Amino acid sequence: MNVKVVIFDWDGTLIDSVEHIAESLHQAATELGYPDLERKAYRNIIGLGMVEALQKLYPDLSLDEIARIREGYSGYFFQKVTTPQNVFDGMAEVVADICQSGRGCSVATGKSRRGLAQALTTSGLGHHFDITRCADETRSKPDPLMLEEILEFYGYQPEDAVMIGDTHYDLDMARRIGMPAIGVEWGAHDREVLQSCDPCAVVNTVGDLRRVLGL
C-alpha cells in the first residue's frame, strides 16, 4: 500500500488483551449486581470508549453507576501489566519496520489515556509512535474525530493513511472519512463482521498483513 502513515488500534490488534478486558468487565459488573452476560457481549464492545461500552452492555445506567463499574474494572484490569510478551507475535517487528520505512506510525484506541500511557511503556512499543489518541480525550469510535486529529498532526488527507484494527468500530471509523482500512482476525470480531465495513483487506496472519503493507 502506498500510504504515508499507518494507524493502529491497540487492544486486539497489537496487544493480546481481549480476554483480559472481557473478564475484567465481567467481574466488575457482576460484582456490583449487574446481569452476567455472555462473554461474547463483553468482547463485542471492545474498541468503544468505556462509557459507550457500558451503555451498550447495560442500557440506562446512570453516570454514578458507570463510574462505579469503571472503578471496579480498573481495579481488575490493572492487576495485569502489559509486557512485550503480550504483543502479538510479529507485530513489534511490523511496527518497527513501518518506522524504518519512513512512514508515520500512530495509535487510535478506545483505551483511556491512563491505560495507554502505562501500556506504551511496559509493552516496549511506545517509542515507535508519533502520536496516540484515546477515547477519553476525544470521541469514542466509530466517530472519526481521533483519526482526523491524527491526520491534522501529520498534515495528511484520509487517503494518505490506513487504519488497522480488529473490530468493526475501527473499520467503520475509517470508512466514515474515506480512509483505507485493514481488518485483522486475531482480535475481537470475526471476518464476516470486519468485511461488513468494506475494508481494503482482512488478514488472518501477520505475514498477510506485512504483504498488504508492502513490508
Rank of each mutant, 00 (worst) to 15 (best):
K80D: 11
A41H: 15
A161H: 03
E148M: 13
D172G: 02
R103C: 14
V6M: 01
E185P: 01
V206F: 03
N2T: 12
S140N: 12
T13W: 10
V184W: 00
V5Y: 02
T167C: 05
H26L: 13
R139Q: 14
D208H: 14
D143N: 12
L215M: 07
D64S: 15
I45V: 15
A117V: 07
V202L: 06
I21K: 00
V107D: 06
T167W: 01
T121K: 12
I21Y: 00
T205S: 15
E65A: 09
S62V: 10
L145A: 12
V193S: 02
T121I: 15
S24C: 07
Y58S: 01
I46G: 00
I131T: 07
I150L: 01
P59G: 04
L63C: 09
Q85D: 13
L147E: 01
Q195T: 11
E148L: 14
S24V: 05
Q195Y: 12
E23V: 11
Y154D: 03
H20N: 05
A22F: 02
P144F: 06
V206L: 08
V212C: 08
T122A: 06
S106G: 04
I131P: 04
E31T: 14
G33C: 04
T83C: 04
M179H: 10
G110W: 00
R39E: 13
G155D: 10
L145C: 12
T109F: 05
Y169S: 04
L25Q: 03
W10C: 03
A41C: 15
L125P: 10
N86H: 13
Y73W: 01
Y42V: 14
A174D: 06
A67N: 13
R176K: 11
G214H: 03
S24N: 04
F8L: 09
R39C: 08
F129H: 07
V212L: 09
I131D: 06
I182V: 15
A29L: 13
V203H: 00
V5C: 15
A108I: 11
V94N: 03
Q118K: 11
Q27H: 15
A108K: 00
G187R: 05
G178V: 09
I131N: 03
A161Q: 12
D190N: 09
E71W: 08
H20T: 05
F78L: 12
L120P: 03
A22W: 06
T205C: 10
V162C: 11
S24K: 03
D160P: 06
